[in-house]
Amino acid sequence: MSSSNDTSRPAVFATTQWTRVLAARGESPDARAALSELCEAYYRPVLAFIRSWTGDDDRARDLTHDFFSRLLGGKGVAGVDPQRGRFRSFLLGAAKHFLADVRDRELAARRGGQHEHVPLKPETDTSPGNDPLDPQTPRFEMEFDRQWALTILDRVLKALASEHEQAGKSRQFEVLKGWLTGDVEGRSQAAAAALLGMHEGAVKVAIHRLRRQFRELVKREIAQTLDDPAQVADELRYLLSILA
């Protein structure tokens, strides 16, 4: 995590810091800002998880909106302990509980409840052997984690792009970022040098520096979601394994 006097880089994924999450319990301007940023930062992983469960894009978006409204409405994070666990795990657990509640309410409605009774038929999704999808299913969790990893990488790439823009090196970043993402499309470093009007040796140095900056930013963003900095290496290995 950057020091307090490091102003050269914009805050990335800052909404996942435990202190901001705890602040989200209140009604102060900072708390409201934290809630808004939190929804933006973690919208995609939660949407992917819920979409895996519903199999329907429109319904998934509606449920994701409802999930964040409930989670961030006041008491959703009231019991969070910033000294325990990963925020990623907390958010996934909250999404599981939310979907389990949705499933239970829908089952109750179909079986009588306070809604219009819908008789069971062989083709309905409440027939034996065809129950609604279980939000505990591991493949849904894997999709959440994959989107979490992609979101971190996307946020870090945007931070690096912003840094290069401020330094007047946007063109250089656009040409060289493929060496971060693996999307070089057969382009050689010599070809990149020609595009940028640089010596090939200078391009090699620039790529090395860019990779180092990228690694450090990824570690910093991961650290913001943990209670113990010693866990960063494990989280980074897990992130890489998810994307492998």
Rank of each mutant, 00 (worst) to 15 (best):
T16Y: 02
R9V: 15
S3H: 11
A34H: 04
Q213R: 09
G93A: 06
A161M: 03
T19W: 00
Y42Q: 07
K158E: 12
R25I: 00
R212G: 06
R171M: 01
V232M: 12
A191G: 07
S36Q: 08
G85L: 00
K177S: 02
D57Q: 13
K75Q: 06
F90G: 04
T19S: 01
R51D: 05
S241G: 02
A159W: 07
V203I: 05
R51K: 12
A194F: 04
G168H: 10
R155I: 07
G197Y: 04
S241P: 04
E185N: 07
G129L: 02
S36A: 07
G178I: 01
P135W: 12
A191E: 12
T54I: 01
K158A: 11
D227K: 00
R212S: 08
V102E: 15
G112T: 13
R59V: 13
G93L: 05
R59H: 13
L120Q: 12
R215M: 01
D6L: 05
A193E: 12
V102F: 09
R86I: 00
Q114I: 10
M198H: 09
Q166R: 15
L195V: 02
A149R: 06
D62G: 10
I207G: 12
S127D: 07
S188D: 05
G76I: 03
A194H: 14
F13I: 09
R139F: 08
L239C: 06
F68M: 05
S170K: 12
I207P: 11
E143A: 14
T126A: 04
H115K: 14
L239I: 12
L226R: 00
R209C: 07
L239H: 09
D56N: 14
A230Y: 00
F49R: 05
K75S: 11
V175G: 11
V232C: 13
Y238P: 04
K75H: 10
I50S: 02
V118N: 08
L157N: 07
A108S: 08
A109C: 09
K121R: 15
K121F: 14
T124I: 10
E27L: 03
A161H: 03
F144M: 04
F87A: 00
V232L: 11
A233R: 08
G79F: 00
F98P: 15
F67G: 10
G201S: 13
Q83F: 01
P45R: 06
F67M: 13
S241N: 06
S241Q: 11
Q231M: 04
L210R: 04
K169E: 14
R70T: 13
Q189S: 07
R139W: 15
G74L: 08
P122S: 13
D125F: 07
G74H: 06
L217W: 00
A159M: 11
E163Y: 12
G26T: 05
E163M: 13
K219C: 12
V203L: 06
T15R: 03
